[in-house]
Amino acid sequence: MTLVRRRLTITPTVTVYLALAALLVIGSILVGANGGVLLDQSGILNILTRSTLLGLVAIGQTMVIVTGSLDLSVAYLAGLCSLVTAETMAGRTSMMVPGVLLALAVAAVVGLINGLVITVLKANAFIATLGVALILRGYLEHNYTGPAGSVPRAFQHLGYDRIGPVPVSALLVLLIGTAVWWFSRRTRTGYHLYAVGGDTEVARLSGVRTSRTIVTAHVLCASMAGLAGVLLAARLGSGAPYAGTDAGYDLESIAAAVLGGAVLTGGRGGVVGTIGGVLILATLDTVFDDLAVDPFLKDVVRGVVLVAAVALYARHRLSRRSS
């Protein structure tokens, strides 16, 4: 009884990192055969840079998916927040902190609206956040035709500085990822996120404040998208209304979370797996760029990887159920 046997269980999180390792090896060979090097200084920098912003959005997205919800408004929200940042700063160093805070506040309010529409009006999360996304798009299209505002040079360091091949912004995302991991796996609210996603009614009957938990997840998710917007501004030097949608943060973040083992019905998934998913997507892109692959083929492969991962996890769950 006291003897605790620990078997190495092949969880989706383990699978995704094994897949990442395999992908790095295969990618290195393919790129090598083409006369290049995948994992040199610039290759690593490339992968990490691609991962940073999507990683941030995907970490937030994971939190709402875990509660059984979804956020389709993150892409427009990131664009909006990059504008808020850049227009508030308007090139002034003194406005750096207010710019960041204002952007995060806007994001949090949008998350709050998402959460309340879902919990109070009982709207389906897909529709509710799609609606909010459309409203944001309407606002952006009506008021902006292209980049606006500007951030001071000092702030751009956040987007470009690096230590060796590692961007400072990637370290920031790692730090935030750790914090969110701790929050979701160690705090009471974090436990409740998983419980609500596992079965809302069970959670409610057990005394969990389910609505509050869902709203918390949405505010967290939107804040992450807002922070991604802030980093976008730092990277681009100005606010870019469509930077988030051009990069497809909405669907890509969901794809990354699912690659990392999250299940759209909720209750499963986590930050660690999602970061693995983001790295896989970024590595795929980098390899394809190095090999100068046709963009169409690129999308096909990404699609195949995603579907294969979901099928693999589903099989895994089934076999565990009947054991």
Binding site: Y191, H192, Y194, A195, G198, V202, A203, L205, V208, G267
Partner: peptide, 18 residues
């Protein structure tokens, strides 16, 4: 049944009162 199948026994027992 009023348990979360994918959480542990202890997590279920203290759900909402961790």
């Amino acid at each position: 049944f009023n348990l979360l199948p994918h959480r542990t026994v202890a997590e279920n027992v203290y759900l909402g009162r961790e």
